[in-house]
């Protein structure tokens, strides 16, 4: 079975997002980059090391945050992260110091002395992130760091990911099945599906290619669509909402004018990213050869 196939991609430093539906091969790709899964063919190098032959050298300078739960319940976050830092080769005193630093950065306070069995999902994700940063890696691979978090927790986590890439100066490769999330924090996005590359581009390109305005009006949405269409805007109903494909800034004015003309109230205007499915159906022409 092919998990990741014919994937050729060159990832630049900074925060890079890896997007794909569940089962697209994101986690498999990360494990290959750690030198843990052999590729049947092809090659990859991380920080200048070949993944096939120099796995240990890579793993010394790379941090990895797995997608699934990986925390034993009977130790405190402090003990655990110290142990993990030592396993990355840090002497005990240095490991203790780094642990205190990193747990502070991820925002774990008094709880860090309590056994992790009683932690909330948000706290567990923070510890998982902390152990990936404990040895001050040059690159961190974060597998679905926002998994299971509530909206506020997601925002915090994404903020942290952004800080790691900018303030901390650590390159980040972060996966998610939600393109919208990654757009907010990534410099570039790689989209894979079924193990194959769909597109790889700077985040701005993806956003530009997928500008979609979702409009909610309080009444007569059918007539509203007609009014927009007659004004030369591509609009179509989507349930109670109206989707408008933005061609330029002028379209915002036409939406406003159409609503005013009909006398209906605008409840909501939301710029929505393309859903993954749409990206898969219509990959941008230049994406495949990235």
């Amino acid at each position: 079975m092919l998990a990741v196939c014919d994937l050729t991609v060159d990832v630049a430093p900074g925060v890079v997002g890896l997007v794909g539906a569940n089962g697209a091969g994101k986690s498999t790709l990360l494990k290959m980059l750690l030198g843990l899964l052999p590729a049947t063919s092809g090659s990859a190098s991380v920080l200048g090391h070949d993944v096939a032959t120099e796995g240990p050298a890579i793993r010394q300078r790379v941090g990895y945050m797995p997608e699934h739960d990986c925390l034993p319940p009977d130790v405190s976050a402090t003990e655990f992260v110290v142990h993990m830092a030592q396993l990355s080769g840090l002497p005990r005193a240095a490991a203790r110091e780094r642990t205190a630093d990193v747990l502070r950065h991820v925002g774990l306070d008094e709880e860090r002395y309590r056994p992790m069995g009683g932690y909330s999902t948000g706290m567990r994700q923070r510890v998982k992130l902390a152990q990936a940063l404990a040895h001050d890696p040059q690159l961190v691979l974060l597998d679905e760091p926002t998994n299971g978090l509530d909206p506020a927790g997601r925002d915090d986590m994404l903020g942290l990911v952004r800080r790691i890439g900018t303030e901390f100066g650590i390159s980040v490769l972060v996966t998610s099945h939600l393109l919208g999330e990654l757009e907010r924090v990534c410099d570039a996005v790689v989209v894979i599906d079924g193990g194959q590359l769909l597109r790889s581009s700077a985040t701005a390109d993806v956003t530009a290619a997928s500008a979609l305005l979702v409009v909610e009006v309080d009444a007569r949405s059918g007539e509203f669509v007609d009014a927009l269409t007659s004004a030369g805007v591509r609009a179509h109903p989507a349930g109670r909402l109206v989707e408008v494909e933005l061609a330029g800034d002028g379209d915002y004015d036409r939406v406003r004018d159409a609503a005013a003309g009909l006398g209906v109230g605008l409840v909501r205007l939301e710029q929505r990213r393309h859903r993954m499915a749409e990206l898969f159906l219509a990959p941008a022409g230049g994406g495949r050869d990235a």
């Binding site: 750690l34 793993r59 990895y64 797995p66 699934h68 993990m84 990355s88 080769g89």
Partner: peptide
Amino acid sequence: GVMSLYFSRP
């Protein structure tokens, strides 16, 4: 699931 953290280290 701690094994994955061990194996991702040198």
